[in-house]
Design a protein around this nucleic acid. Sequence first.
DNA 1: TATCCGTGGCT
DNA 2: TAGCCAAGGAT
Length: 295
Amino acid sequence: MRRRVLDWYAVHARPLPWRDPETTAWGVFVSEVMSQQTPVGRVEPVWREWLARWPTAGDLAAESPGEVVRAWGRLGYPRRALRLREAAVAMVEHHDGEVPQDEDALRSLPGVGAYTAAAVAAFAHGRRTVVVDTNVRRVLARTLQGRAQAAPALTAAESRLAAEVVPQDPETSAVWNVAVMELGALVCRARSPECEACPVRDLCAWVAAGRPADDGPPRRGQAWHGTDRQVRGAIVQTLRESPDAIARAGLEHAVCTRLRLDPARHAAQVDRCVGSLVEDGLVEPVDGDRLRLPA
DNA sequence: TATCCGTGGCT
DNA sequence: TAGCCAAGGAT
């Protein structure tokens, strides 16, 4: 199985810029944070802008939060932009401006969880780690467990399984980790798997079982229309597009217009969301009644 | 552990 | 078309 996946990756890997051997650890770190819950195709152009503008952690650490959120554009979950900047500050203050190599040190950075710490240690520093993302979970669930999808949340059994299949040699392990992810992203996809193109289809327990449908609990869809998330998104988008601070009433109007909401009935929701965004550090009140991205 | 947190393309 | 889903993390 390992040889097949590694050989497949050698031929089919996408030429993502952060996979270039000359990309710095900082570049890899930025790519991993941007890719959290955002398709890599959308990440690539923003990543290029960021690395040209802030080629080191020190460069980003010196930038204002608002400018970082603005440059984040529409990647989604803009709190990640703030945490990425905070991580850069921590690197400057505690790691001599460099991306830590140790998984635990990475884990302690803002916005870095188990996945990102393992991924950066492996892909930026060549460490042997166990990278478990949604792609890896799905590939292992199908090939080894014969299930259509992984469990809703990562289980201890899954982590053990993932750890068992990572090659011992550090260099090979790093390629293995990215290769399984790539297989999940390109072939062993969640919705329309392309089993005919899979290098391990004849070893796959799910294929052997006749590709049975998922037998797990029904997934809860993410509500969107009319939610605080939608309103928060519209608020930040409006402020991103405005070079100057905006009066609260003007912001309410702009957001309701953008979302086609009745201002009379949604002013309170917009206000509540502004409050939560201020708490998150994504919005900053100025001059009493005006709002802007944080300076 | 369940829920919250953006955005947009795909089926 | 409406829902599903994407290199997760924090609480």
